[in-house]
Structure formats: structure tokens, C-alpha cells
Design a protein around this nucleic acid. Structure first.
Lengths: 228, 228
DNA sequence: TGTTCATGTAAACGGCTATTACATAAAAGC
DNA sequence: GCTTTTATGTAATAGCCGTTTACATGAACA
């Protein structure tokens, strides 16, 4: 009695790949119905198994979300790291690529991104598993990429004018997250804004970098009136 | 008020103030159990009424959240407006107050803030009511305060170097939201960071303003090495 | 006083999370 | 190969929640 038009062909009584399929289904549902309006039962339905089956792979609903967050942070870190590419060819161009990679991830995996960062809506007392994921090694690795970039940029400054690296990294993070959170999650806010998230973030970063003092004069004009 | 031990003493069969009490209870529960882990039934319990009672005041759960968002935006706009205070005594000091007011609101009303801005986690296809609140007049008024501030700051620049106002306003918004979202919602991310959200945002804004070119030289040192 | 309307309750339905007891088949030991 | 063990599925169930419907209460008003 196994499947006809189902999403994941059931070979036998045992599924064979249920865990990953459940994660995939959950990400899809989160994208559709919202990050915390998703239903474990519905994910099971999508995978073609009974509502109790997921509990063989995840302790509870929260554990599944935590796994989405954890694996999300891993891909996130990898993407950022690849984009930064050790600051090659130049710290500045690599930095730009880093910002774009950040936004790209948020756009391509909105479900993961929401679970990773919009945990304030989900938890505080509850949702400890997700919190744990947010301080997982993968999450730390992602932040380290930002910190590396900050370090490379600051290295161009005379030591006496160098702000704390962690602080600069946090600035970069808050700008990126601010843009991603406000502009990418559909419907959140700025829909009338005719600018792409990339344009907003890039211009913001340019002004910030100019303020830091790590911007060559050539790019001076970029941040001034182009669109009046 | 006329209570004894209960949260809201019932004078009679009719409650008299149920709508507001439900909103209050919901905000409390959201703060405790997470923005979307809250239960309408439990809010009703807190208010001392039956689970069906809320439906006399809100079409459904979403409508209650939308009302929290809407009223939240109103208080938010009022706070920002008061802090900005028309740029008095100086645009720069008023701007600093504005940033602090932003963070203060997020800290004092984390439930409201989460519902107002972390809608990506809640909705997209669903939760249209909340989306509507995010483009309500109140929300627009809040953004207008930011835009006023941006305008006042940019007025100090020669016209040829003036970036588009909306863009600067968006930059301010993304920085503020980034800090609020990452640092204020408990447990979200930076717990090991020994800096207050205010310190992060203020230093970030200073560098940004310096990049914009609207910072007097006196404050130059503030953004450089203080803590190594 | 009697009627109307706003606002409450009770009871019920279906969906969800999670648990428990049981079923099935793949792997491991003999 | 046959049996035992273990991993992974199902069925049935309990309890909570959202929401609806029919009914109850009492305040406002004619």
C-alpha cells in the first residue's frame, strides 16, 4: 500500500532516508507557512510516514528545528568562508563578496535563516535546543569568518586608530543581519523600497568603511548622490 | 483597580476590560514562552475567562497578534519621536537619543518588538493580518522619524555629497534593528559579548556618521582603540 | 417593565504534539 | 541458514489548542 503520487517513494516498510527527508519537508513547510506555524505531522505526511515516525529521529519538534538551525549554520559558514576566500584578491573585493554571500544565503534558505536568527520569536524560556544550535561550533565558525574579514580590514589602519576587532565584526554582523531580516523575509517591511537588499547593504558598508578609514579615495563618489 | 489575589478581578458576568487585559496577558506570555508559542487559551485563563471569550474581541489568534503589532508600532513611533525631539538641542545628540530609544523599546517590550519585526518566522503566506500591521500608519510614522533624523543629518552636508535620504534612513534602521534583533532578544546570539547593545550601536553609528561626513572632529577619538 | 445587543459560557470538532505498545525488517551472532 | 537483536516503522491514545455554534447573562435603552 505504498505510494502512487507521493513525494518520496517508499521502497519498503522502512523508509531509508527519513531523517533527511523530514528536514527537507520541514524547511519547505517553514518557507510556506512560517517558521513556527509548521507542523511536524504535516512534515511526516509529506514524507509519507505516520505522525509518530519523526520521533524515531528527533526527540521532539524543537529538536528538529535545532537540527535545521545547526545544519543551516554549517552551510552558512561554508558559504561565507568561500566568499571571503581569505581576502583574495583584495580585502575590499572579498568583503563585498562576503556581504553578498550573506544576503544570498538568507534569500536561498529563508527557513533556515529564520530558525537560526529569529529565535526571539520562538523561544526564550522554551526552545533551548535552538539556542544551543546558535552557539554551536558551526555558528561560531560563521562569526569567525566575519571576524577575519574585520581583522583584514583593520590591518590597513594605523594601530592607534584601530577599533577592537570584535566590535568591528559585530558591526558588520548587525548591518548584514539588519538588512537580511528587514528586507529579505518576505512581507516583513520594506516592500515599497525600490532598492535591492544588496544595494542597501553595499552602500551602508561603503559609508561605514569610509568612516573606518579603510576606503581608497577612488570609491568616494559611490556613496554620494546617484539617485537623488 | 479593584482586585484581590487575581490578576483581574471579575466584577460580574461581564468582564469590562477584556480586550486590553487579553493583550496584556498575551504580551506577558509571548515574553515568557516565545512569540509564537503563546496560547490564546492560556491568555484567556490569565484573564479569568473561558477559551471562547477572546473571540468576542478578536477574529482569531492572528488578529490578536496583529493588534499587538499595531499598538506596538504606535508606542514605538511615539518613543522615537519623543527621543528625536525635532533634533533638539543638536541633531547629533538627538540622533544618539533616538538610537537609545530604539533599543530601549526593544528591551522593554520584547514581545511587541518580536511580533512587529520577526514576522518572517511567523508568516509569509499566513499571518497576513500581522503583515498589514507592519504597513500601518503607525509603522510608517515610526519610519518617518528615522527619515527626519536622516534628513537633519544630511542637511549638514554639501548637496553634491548628499546620499538619498531614504537610503540613509534605511541604513539607520538596519543598524538599529540588527543590534536589537541580535543582542536584545535573550539567548539569540551574542551572550559572551561583554558589550551592551547600546555600546555596539553607538560605536557603529559613530563610524557610519563619520563616513557620511557629518561628524565634528571632536568625536574622532571615540571610535578608535579604547579597549584594545 | 420589557426588548435588544454586547459579551460571556459550554460543548463539540478536528488538528497537533507526544507517548506507549506493537509490527516489521535489516543486521549480527551463532 | 536460523535465530536474536536492534533500528525503524504503525496504531491507538491522551491532552492541549483553535475555532465554531448554540445558549446564558446582564447592561443599555425604549
Amino acid at each position: 500500500m505504498n505510494n502512487s503520487g507521493r513525494r518520496w517513494q517508499r521502497r519498503s516498510y522502512h523508509h531509508g532516508n527519513l531523517k533527511e527527508v523530514l528536514l527537507e519537508a520541514a524547511r519547505k513547510l517553514i518557507q510556506e507557512h512560517g517558521a513556527f506555524g509548521f507542523s511536524l505531522t504535516e512534515a511526516a505526511r509529506l514524507a509519507g510516514v505516520s505522525p509518530a515516525a519523526p520521533y524515531r529521529h528527533f526527540r521532539d519538534r524543537d529538536a528538529l528545528l535545532a537540527e535545521i538551525a545547526r545544519s543551516g549554520f554549517e552551510r552558512f559558514a561554508a558559504r561565507l568562508d568561500a566568499a571571503w576566500n581569505n581576502g583574495i584578491p583584495t580585502p575590499l573585493s572579498a568583503f563585498e563578496a562576503l556581504g553578498r554571500a550573506y544576503l544570498t544565503f538568507a534569500r536561498e534558505e529563508p527557513a533556515s535563516y529564520a530558525v537560526m536568527f529569529e529565535t526571539g520569536a520562538s523561544a526564550e524560556s522554551g526552545g533551548e535546543a535552538i539556542q544551543a544550535a546558535a552557539s554551536s561550533p558551526a555558528a561560531e565558525k560563521a562569526f569567525n569568518v566575519l571576524q577575519q574579514a574585520a581583522a583584514a580590514l583593520c590591518r590597513q589602519l594605523p594601530e592607534t586608530e584601530r577599533p577592537p576587532l570584535k566590535l568591528v565584526a559585530l558591526h558588520i554582523w548587525t548591518m548584514s543581519h539588519g538588512v537580511a531580516s528587514l528586507f529579505i523575509q518576505e512581507g516583513s517591511a520594506a516592500k515599497k523600497v525600490p532598492l535591492s537588499p544588496e544595494e542597501v547593504l553595499e552602500s551602508e558598508m561603503l559609508i561605514y568603511l569610509k568612516g573606518l578609514g579603510v576606503l581608497p579615495e577612488a570609491t568616494d563618489g559611490v556613496v554620494s548622490t546617484e539617485q537623488a
